[in-house]
Amino acid sequence: MTTTVAPITQDCLREQEARRIRTARPDLGARHDLTSYDGLTAAWCDITAEGDAGSLVTVVLRNFDLAQWVRDTCVFALGVGPQQAADWRTSFTRTVFLAGNPAQLRERFRFAHTADDDSAAWTTPGPAALTSSLRRLLKLFDAPAGLPPRPDILVELPDGHRPPGRPRARRDLYVATADCTISEALVHVNHVLAEAVLDGLIAAGDHLVVHQVPRIVGLSARLATVRVTTEKHLPGRLKAAAGLTEEALVA
């Protein structure tokens, strides 16, 4: 029988988000009362107002398959060097998604990682100016459809460098699909995965089970990290848009 862990309360969501902001930018933690909804939204406004300052990753997407993209997002993030990772983390793993075909672009642009089937490609984290010509050439990825329904799927990350003594782990990745476009889901899941990799929660060879659920409620495992966003129709309230559970060992 599955047991349900304690529900994700508003307090819990505020704490999670406050911790995320403080980890990346202690100055914002000092400037705003991150225990309140208003304080969090004020911090988000500051982050948005910083615009193109800081480190940025550009992802070019030809087409989108959630499981494959989850795998490649992790592979890319695992390959980011320590200094670039630190800068990108400070910029809240800011990422711009563009419509484009990596196969058409590789002669003109250098990518840090490209999916095996050329469905997506990632630039190295860096100042926005480094990718401005790529961003001028392409258009923002516009995917207003909802995520197509699919069964839970196991994503096995390829083997690679693992921290010594770190056993192979398995986590569940939950994506909330209700009232969420593919464009929005990309942003949410990208932050969860990129930050989890940079924070060492996900390592090479780990397994992720991707679950699409209408809402992230009634889970049987605790969330180690969660993407917090506002409720579109409930002013003043937060919700979990995506989340990664605490680890279990791969049998």
Binding site: R62, N63, F64, A99
Partner: peptide, 15 residues
């Protein structure tokens, strides 16, 4: 570049 599968536009891709 046809992104109708995700509800998106179709582009002429001469990039």
């Amino acid at each position: 570049l046809d992104q109708r599968e995700v509800g998106g536009p179709v582009y002429l891709d001469l990039t």
